[in-house]
Design a protein around this nucleic acid. Structure first.
Lengths: 122, 122
DNA sequence: ATTATTGTATTAAGCGCTTAGTACAATAAT
DNA sequence: ATTATTGTACTAAGCGCTTAATACAATAAT
């Protein structure tokens, strides 16, 4: 996994987001076992306590669950995963439009800017 | 000004962003005087020290400057403001596309989602 | 001249996040 | 049976953010 952190927000929240994204993008497939707290912590170069906190937090969503001593697993409920993926996409879209409309851009300008950005990133 | 804060990031950084946005959206017009540190702090319901920290930070961009005892003022350089507005719009667009592409959405799906969100927000 | 207002600086306390270190219980692996 | 691995729990220290409470210097307003 490609961990990226900024220092303006708690690490554990960024961990939650990135693992969440990892599941929704099928990097952690439905039903698969997630690496152990210690392994994930090593991989992310983060204290095990911080990773533990993130994983517990992530369980609130129901995307993962822990089996007391055999490990942690991604849910097999693909419908749920699809729903959460769609929810997140909508949320990002809403946020984006809110932000950019405050800058005074019109719908046409927004679409144009997206087209341009697509070209640049190719 | 309509201040909104979340508790997952330093207040002073959120202040910087929102005042920055206030200038780029002409809520604080070029050349105009910004309210005093104390008034802004009261308005935002924040400690004066926190607001002071945000304003000093914001001066790095050159959008505002302080006149030792008469107050703080927005730059009159409209070209600069336009440039920063465009930069910010681009940055938001890039971030948005990065995030949403990780969820596996295609360009067509992204455009469709934007169209839908536009409809919903009307 | 006096007063009010401006930006600025300083110190102290409280709190949450992060890391470090250690420990325990339950199960899997041997 | 023994060992390794799993999630979990706890305490302590360091650090940054926030608030509180003052204080000072320079200028505007009176």
């Amino acid at each position: 996994m490609n961990w990226i952190f900024t220092d303006d927000r708690p690490i554990y929240l960024q961990l939650v987001e990135q693992i969440n994204l990892g599941i929704l993008s099928n990097e952690f497939p439905p039903g698969s076992q997630v690496p152990s707290v210690r392994d994930l912590a090593m991989d992310a170069e983060v204290n095990p306590n911080t990773m533990q906190k993130a994983l517990v937090k992530l369980e609130e969503s129901g995307l993962i669950h822990s089996e007391r001593t055999s490990g942690r697993f991604v849910t097999e409920d693909k419908v749920m995963i699809d729903k959460l993926r769609n929810d997140l996409a909508k949320e990002h879209t809403r946020q984006f439009l809110d932000n950019i409309k405050k800058l005074g851009l019109t719908k046409i300008e927004i679409i144009a800017m997206i087209e341009n950005t697509f070209k640049e990133e190719k």
